[in-house]
Design a protein around this nucleic acid. Structure first.
Length: 290
DNA sequence: ACTAGGTCCTGGTTGC
DNA sequence: TGCAACCAGGACCTAG
């Protein structure tokens, strides 16, 4: 499931393949995959545009096009964006029945949006229109966690009146853009904070540690080209490597890498949360007076 | 203003 | 063995 590091990896892989390329034909195979405008307009308007820069915001990608237009994309759970040479589907393990949008390029390659679960979206942003006005959710995003804006003070202000579990707050894209279930669990583990802790009870030292760990985990995952859990691959169809470094995610019943205690999985706000009860005690361990 | 929970969607896994 | 029920989760929506 692509989160910030996976989306960043996809962006880096696509840049050199798309820059300067022109769209010569568009086929929408699944209408649900187009968020704006109509399917007919999407296919018609996109043709003839050239790709320029790619910008990532949280888990969104914005492909800047010529004439001030843009193409927005969100991969959600199972989306992939791939540039393939003719006949390259097999190598990248593309399943034809999951291809939702197919864009032919002027160099003979094809730019595919594959999305088994159809949660992902593409948006065409006409020239003279701001991406924020067309791409749903984009305008409401919070800070980039790898930017200087994401500080312990920012986090403290953001969760001052939040009584819900810290895990849920980390997943709130309007506060921090790009953290998903995997990296939320990993960051909390490395910071030694229990995912169920009411957000507004975290101390400044804990917030400082958490911010540092979030940045570390995301940066490390980008270095490793993301995590491959279920169906994520990069734009070449290649798996990422971060999952083998995971401390808690997907490791229920296995031993904690720090203390050997068994990793536990619980439900928080309908999502599974993985943690080590010993390294991440339910109450702040200052109570024990040690 | 806030939070909890349902919804979308499909394929893989589980359980009877 | 076969098949139905359940599970995964990002963002959005509704209800309370």
């Amino acid at each position: 499931m692509p989160e910030l590091p996976e989306v960043e990896t996809v962006k880096r892989g696509l840049e050199s393949k798309l820059r300067g390329r022109k769209v010569v034909a568009v086929k929408v195979l699944r209408p649900d995959s187009v968020g704006y405008p109509s399917v007919k307009q999407f296919a018609k308007e996109l043709v003839g545009h050239k790709f320029r820069e790619i910008v990532r915001r949280g888990k969104y990608l914005v492909f800047e096009l010529d004439q001030g237009a843009a193409l927005g994309a969100h991969l959600r759970m199972s989306g992939r964006l791939l540039v393939l040479k003719p006949g390259g589907e097999a190598k990248s393990r593309v399943r034809a029945e999951h291809v939702r949008v197919r864009m032919e390029l002027d160099d003979g390659n094809v730019f595919l949006f594959e999305d088994m679960r159809v949660f992902g979206r593409l948006w065409y942003v006409p020239s003279g229109t701001a991406p924020n006005d067309v791409i749903s959710g984009l305008a409401d995003l919070g800070v980039e966690p790898l930017s200087e804006e994401f500080t312990p003070k920012y986090l403290q202000d953001g969760l001052r009146n939040k009584k819900g579990p810290i895990k849920s707050v980390l997943l709130d894209q309007t506060l921090i853009a790009g953290i998903g279930n995997i990296y939320a669990d990993e960051s909390l583990h490395l910071a030694g904070i229990n995912p169920q802790r009411p957000a507004n009870t975290l101390t400044m030292p804990e917030l400082t540690k958490l911010v540092a760990r979030v940045k570390e985990v995301l940066a490390r995952a980008i270095e490793k080209r993301g995590s491959t859990l279920r169906n994520y691959t990069d734009s070449d169809g290649v798996n990422g490597n971060y999952q083998s470094l995971a401390h808690v995610y997907g490791r229920e019943g296995e031993n904690c890498r720090k203390c050997k205690h068994s990793i536990v999985r619980v439900k928080i706000a309908g999502r599974s949360a993985h943690f080590c009860p010993q390294c991440q005690p339910a109450a702040a361990n200052k109570v024990a007076g040690k």
